[in-house]
């Protein structure tokens, strides 16, 4: 009896045992690898390629952070997390940063003690149905059976959407995107709902993507971004500025092709010079080498390059830039000044 109490308490304490450290950057550098919480498999965002290397839009941000902190794009340990386990894993110190299509919300920012460091994809929740159903609007879905990943904001939005529109539905909870895809294709649910980008990525892996239509209604705002533990501001700054260096680089026309050339000597544009470290000491302020942004952009490209390579219109996922275009092109991507 005593023993079982002991083991029980051990298990409880184990939940909180990963000591939340306040100097993640130093820990990452001492360890030599970045532990990045990633999706367990979502084409275009985080999925292994034919050689088993993780590739994708979110993966590239992990690699960019690894280049900044460690100088090596391969020094990343990807920890696949489900929508249920992701925040616990981050809070418990299992991962250093979470880049996993996670929506920035007030309660996650405060009550879950996370810090979202910007937005790398402005998304919204949508519905996908088989064209054979002949449905053209989400408002025609009364009585439908809906597959939904548990532990997500979409789960809550779904409940709100159907309630506000006085419609009923039958939720079929699934744990992972792969499971949802399998259930949806087997016809165990009429509708699959998740973020628009996730639907497009999932549909891209179907045998006949044309048989499935994503309904026009976007029922929520889903700003997806990298999250870190609350309270470690230095590490949060690194993640924030790596993301915004990628966004800024696109704005200033710095690409993986020309970044070495531009960094060789100061250019006409002082903003580029400060970004690439040929002017000022911005890197040192972050606790990074002064040429950190050069290495990052050389390794993974700028935001636009990453977007086009993994989820852009020329990929099977085929997403338009939309809200994720640069602010100069009418989008929401806007990097604060490097100064």
């Amino acid at each position: 009896m005593k023993k079982s109490i002991f083991l029980g308490t051990l298990a409880v304490a184990g939940l909180a045992a990963g000591l939340a450290s306040a100097q993640t950057l130093a820990d990452v550098q001492a360890r030599g690898t970045l532990k990045c919480g990633s999706n367990e498999g979502l084409a275009g965002f985080a999925a292994p390629d034919a050689n088993g290397n993780m590739q994708g839009f979110d993966v590239s941000l992990c690699r960019a952070i690894a280049v900044a902190a460690l100088g090596d794009a391969q020094a990343v340990e990807f920890v696949p997390l489900t929508s249920q386990t992701r925040f616990t894993a981050l809070a418990a110190g299992e991962v250093d940063v979470l880049v996993r299509n996670s929506t920035w919300t007030l309660s996650r920012d405060t009550d879950l003690k996370l810090d979202f460091k910007g937005v790398n994809y402005y998304d919204g929740q949508a519905f996908m149905v088989n064209t054979a159903l002949g449905v053209s609007s989400a408002r025609e879905l009364d009585g439908a059976t809906v597959c939904i990943q548990t532990g997500t904001t979409t789960e809550l939005n779904l409940a709100d959407f159907f309630r506000v529109n006085n419609m009923t539905y039958e939720p079929v909870p699934v744990a992972t995107n792969a499971e949802g895809q399998q259930q949806y294709l087997a016809g165990a649910c009429d509708v699959y709902t998740t973020d628009m980008s996730g639907l497009a990525a999932t549909r891209a892996t179907f045998e006949s993507p044309a048989d499935h239509v994503i309904l026009p209604e976007i029922v929520s705002k889903e700003p997806l971004g990298p999250a870190v533990r609350h309270g470690d501001n230095e590490w949060g700054d690194v993640v924030y500025w790596v993301l915004h260096a990628l966004i800024g680089a696109e704005e200033y026309g710095v690409t993986s092709a020309n970044v070495r050339e531009l960094a060789a000597a100061p250019t006409e544009n002082p903003e580029i010079n400060r970004l690439l470290g040929t002017e000022g000491e911005l890197g040192a302020m972050l606790g990074l080498p002064n040429d950190w942004a050069v290495n990052v952009i050389a390794a993974v490209g700028n935001y636009g390059e990453i977007f086009e390579a993994h989820i852009g219109e020329n990929t099977p996922v085929g997403l338009a830039r939309g809200l994720n275009a640069q602010w100069t092109d009418g989008g929401l991507m806007y990097a604060p000044p490097f100064r």
Binding site: S83, Q84, F87, T88, A91, R108, D111, L112, K113, T150, G151, E155, L156, P173
Partner: peptide, 8 residues
């Protein structure tokens, strides 16, 4: 599951 996940 869901409650823990939504409330942390």
């Amino acid at each position: 599951g869901i409650t823990i996940n939504q409330t942390g």
